[in-house]
Amino acid sequence: MTKKQCPRFSPEDMVRPPLSTAISVCLAALLTLLAGCSTENREPLPVIAKISSPYTFTDQEGQDISQQLFDGKIYVADFFFTSCPTICPIMKTQMLRVYEAFKDRNDVLLLSHTIDPVHDTVAVLHDYAQRLEVSASGWHMVTGPKEQIYETALLYGLGAAEDKNAPGGFIHSGSFCLVDRKSRIRGYYKGTEKEAVDRLIKDIRFLLDEP
């Protein structure tokens, strides 16, 4: 009788779920390692479009920011506004991760355009950047004439528009656009998703090795 009861309460039975979890954790770790090793054999990122913006904007330090500044540099562009109550705070939290990952490199830059230039003046952007504890040398937050900013959003393939019914008064894409050293768009990443931004950070490292 004891022989029949014992297997029902054996430790093997009780620990089956943890065992499978432990195995999947080990597998995941192994896969991550393998993925890390295989970056050299990766397919190159697609070339989506060439950016050539004719406009010059002004960043949080009052400096003129034109396309030429990004020649020979890898950068990530996005569109936001400082008083945005919905997705921007999440986008900025994620963009901060990219900033922290590359802040010591001068060949990787971030470029955030405000789509609410009437409110987001140089002084407002300066205060915003200071509160985020980021430096203009790595992350330019730019403002300029509204029409030019909206046209630039189209160049990057990121929509932006005024909409009185939207929370905060504007709608815009929550994506980040990755641009290579030759001003070519190489990828889009959802700026509200941690996993997508993990991929962005990996792709920037991959682009840095590209000739």
């Binding site: 705070p89 900025k92 901060l96 985020l132 504890e133």
Partner: peptide, 15 residues
């Protein structure tokens, strides 16, 4: 949570 974070820690000196 978008501003104050899932963990309620806010975002640096912004929120």
């Amino acid at each position: 949570s978008a501003c104050h974070g899932q963990d309620g820690k806010g975002l640096r000196a912004l929120y």
